[in-house]
């Protein structure tokens, strides 16, 4: 079943000396349980695409559908119910002054389910003790796993991963990718996995979208 669809999405940024292209006429679909890879050089529009999909910036043209219904123009606060992001900047994904317990449970609307939190932490090999620490006391890998915990705790079935391994060392990258694979199966997640590492994406993803200068390359 088709979970997410974007059609002819275009977002350009006005800039001195002409327009800066974010993405132009980008279309994609994401099937339930699928992992879609998005590859492209730096500046090719990968992050812009994810931000458009998450409703953080509004495209000048195009349409967005979740389960067949348009959600273009909805606020990120609403979109976050079915879709969450994991960012490249692991530590920067958490408020430096907030303990992890509070940051990680922000996605929860209503009561926090302690059992669910424990289960997620266990699956992601995170100690509960880390919940009482602040992000700068955690490693980059731990922060990324916390980021996944936060994304899933709110019940989202779709993850948008924006170069989540780029800032990590090779060993930590592999661990994170393995965990993501496990989580995907265990939680039946659908994932858009953005990376500039074509080999990684081809190994990991069911389909690959190649971006160049904001456009999809066939």
């Amino acid at each position: 079943m088709e979970l997410l669809r974007g059609a002819h999405l275009t977002k350009t940024f006005p800039e001195a000396g002409g327009e800066q292209i974010g993405i132009r006429d980008v279309s994609f679909t994401l099937q339930e349980g699928e992992m879609l890879g998005v590859v492209g050089e730096s500046g090719s529009g990968k992050s812009t695409l994810l931000r458009v999909i998450a409703g953080l910036i509004r495209p000048q043209e195009g349409e967005l559908f979740y389960q067949g219904k348009s959600y273009l123009g909805k606020r990120p606060q609403e979109i976050g119910r079915f879709l969450q992001m994991v960012f490249q900047d692991a530590q920067g994904s958490f408020d430096p002054r907030m303990i992890m317990r509070r940051s990680v449970t922000e996605t929860v609307r209503g009561e926090v389910n302690g059992a669910e939190l424990s289960e997620l932490l266990e699956r992601l090999r995170l100690s509960e003790k880390l919940l009482d620490k602040k992000p700068l006391e955690l490693s980059g890998g731990e922060c990324q796993r916390m980021s996944i915990t936060r994304a899933l705790l709110g019940g989202a079935q779709i993850l948008l991963c924006d170069e989540i391994t780029s800032a990590l060392d090779v060993k930590t990258q592999q661990e994170l990718v393995e965990l993501l694979k496990e989580m995907r199966l265990a939680k039946k997640l659908s994932i858009i996995f953005v990376s500039h590492d074509l080999d990684l994406v081809e190994e990991l993803c069911d389909r690959v979208l190649l971006l160049q200068d904001g456009k999809v390359q066939k």
Binding site: L56, G80, M85, G92, S93, G154
Partner: peptide, 20 residues
């Protein structure tokens, strides 16, 4: 910062984000 984006996607209001 990414944590502000994360808070917005978490459903937090502008008031909450500004205050906390």
């Amino acid at each position: 910062q990414a944590y502000i984006t994360a808070a917005r996607l978490s459903g937090k209001s502008s008031l909450y984000i500004c205050l906390y």
